[in-house]
Write a protein that binds this DNA or RNA. Structure first.
Lengths: 360, 360
DNA sequence: TCATGATGTTGAAACGTTTTATCGCGGAGG
DNA sequence: CCTCCGCGATAAAACGTTTCAACATCATGA
């Protein structure tokens, strides 16, 4: 073999033009610059015939860009369907011919900072800082030096870095609407938060926002929440304990669990009490974790759109990179809608007289 | 600001040496080449003072290496704790100052091939081709051109590319040993495979190998498997159906479920039949999926070491890259041990007279 | 004294691309 | 006839690093 790799110069020689012209054609900039169609065609066919592929790394020093995006995630928690965020980002980037660098900080700020630097060393065109669970994060110093986006996270301090988040308030509205339209107007209990608006797990953005949406719809429908129980974190164990505790005092009409882990525990407690879903008790939940589809009956839940979140983050990143320098004209916080996934866990109480408005 | 970035030339000028010398020192090659300690120290301190960071992409054209590894995964299935493989790989690579490119092929061979090419364009130093579930894969053409490793996959055709896999046979032995040592010598039923050795889900490497290990230990202990039930895929639904079917005819002593999804369904069927775990029926399983710890009682299961798998793949990749050219002296298939995670789902039948050998 | 070799160091080329400034050329305007 | 402009294309510089071959210096052995 003469040479290891087909280089731009080879293509240029084969098509009888200069490397410059070949470069202009193959980067697509020949279109608006003045390159004749004849030359363009010759270069393209020569490139294809020789199997030319542009060495992305080679042009990096001069060009500054590498068609590359960095994604830094914090702890990759166990049981993490949130990994689909990465998938969504990979796909969205791939659609534009970009590849993703990934790094994991393990939640350590020092590691995070060094990852940011490592990625800048690799000349990434932008950085996505992703959190596996929605929370506030300290924006690492140096992140703002290039295009950057927070994914599933909000900055602790005001920052020029935009955020992409699930629309939790809307999710709360959707969940409440499902219950209201099924006729549950009394005996609705919250599991994992409440009864007051401030009674939520610490540092949980999702809890606060979901509650806002829930209360908004319930208030408008004249439904009073019968009760609520908060806990430190949304684990199946806590779901079990809170529900068992509740069942000692009353039999609710519906449980509104703040996420699927809690609902999983609630199912177990309801089974222990020989109550069946949805005949005796309805269960509504959030997240659409894979277990939601395994439970019997299947859980009705408002889905976290992980893939879409990842894809949206990449889109926003491209938008930021394009209007580099100009002040951020786009809103700093982007919300991705959370769709309702209907299972069989919510029972219809009475023939509803409610107007059947769109539940989207 | 004078310049955007501190360059190697800046460091050289500040320390009064040539860029060459500075490069030699900072790449660590000055140690065995002959660079004076004085010069080395001057360069190092100047680099630190100026905050010099090597632009990884810049030296790529000449050097050929980029301190970068590509990882291509097939479908990133929903409910994928296997994503921890990626985490393990990221961590292992990061420990050596490498970053990971990631791509997702969605299982499509064409996408896969183009991803391989894209990564070679980015001058990755090696490629890990990962499968989310253990299976045989067609090695994409072009993969073998550089260092490469299969993760959680075996090549369909003989190939020079090494593989990293969980030690499923050993896992089968471990699972059987747990049951034997707890005194279960009769009434042990398989869920998800068997009763014959060939009765496994299609294309499932894990099933075949787990069964080999299981039978090995059972045969040695003189235990006859009471029965087995196979299904097309290891879903909770199938676990439920198979177990309910089994319970119509007999009440087993122990269920050996081929993975945790099946065990999850089995729990539901046992609960429906008012049988409790482990008092009435013991349950043993594989994978250590997150649900294993949510079930009540916690499931005893042989864990898939996803993180270690990812880390091992990167290690093997480095080994391959180092002895480039020489024939592959290391064994082509690397097995990572699968540890038993003890829950409370296996009950002790009688005071065992069995010699308590190491179960590791 | 002069070839020889070891020791530090370096200039210049190379890597594969992008960018900048320029060049030849034909025609339009003065 | 000269100048100027637009068009097509290109030569050459640039990017930041690594590598190659050479160089200066000094000690050693013949």
């Amino acid at each position: 073999m003469a040479r290891q790799r087909v280089t731009l110069a080879d293509v240029a020689k084969a098509s009888g033009v200069s490397p410059t012209t070949a470069s202009l054609v193959l980067t697509g900039r020949g279109r608006d610059l003045r390159i004749s169609h004849a030359a363009e065609h010759r270069v393209r066919s020569a490139a294809e015939e020789l199997g030319y592929r542009r060495g992305t790394a080679s042009g990096a020093p001069r060009r500054g860009r590498t068609r590359t995006i960095g994604l830094i995630s914090d702890s990759t928690a166990p049981s993490m369907p949130a990994g689909d965020m990465v998938t969504g980002a990979v796909e969205a980037a791939g659609a534009r011919g970009f590849v993703l660098f990934t790094g994991a900080s393990g939640g350590d700020p020092a590691t995070e900072r060094s990852l940011v630097e490592a990625m800048r060393d690799h000349r990434v065109d932008g950085i996505v800082l992703a959190s596996m669970r929605t929370r506030r994060v300290v924006v690492p110093s140096g992140l703002g030096e290039g295009p950057a986006v927070l994914l599933n996270a909000l900055p602790t301090h005001p920052s020029a870095v935009p955020s992409v988040l699930p629309d939790e308030v809307q999710a709360g509205r959707s969940a409440a609407r499902v219950l209201v339209e099924a006729g549950h107007r009394e005996g609705v209990h919250l599991i994992g938060a409440g009864p007051g608006p401030g009674q939520v797990p610490p540092n949980s953005i999702a809890a606060v926002e979901r509650l806002v949406g829930v209360r908004e719809v319930f208030d408008a429908a004249g439904v009073a929440v019968a009760g609520g129980r908060c806990c430190a974190d949304w684990s199946p164990e806590n779901g079990y304990d809170l529900t068992r505790d509740l069942l000692r005092r009353t039999t609710p009409s519906a449980l509104l669990c703040l996420n699927d882990h809690l609902a999983f525990g609630a199912y177990q407690a309801l089974a222990d009490a020989s109550l069946s879903v949805p005949e005796d008790v309805s269960v509504m939940s959030f997240d659409d974790h894979p277990i939601a589809s395994w439970l019997r009956p299947r859980l009705t839940t408002v889905a976290l759109p992980h893939r879409q979140l990842g894809a949206k983050a990449v889109e926003v990143l491209f938008a930021v990179a394009e209007r580099r320098g100009r002040p951020p004209s786009t809103a700093a916080v982007h919300r991705v809608p959370m769709p309702v996934h209907h299972g069989r866990s919510v029972g219809r109480l009475v023939a509803p007289l409610v107007h059947h408005r769109a539940t989207g």
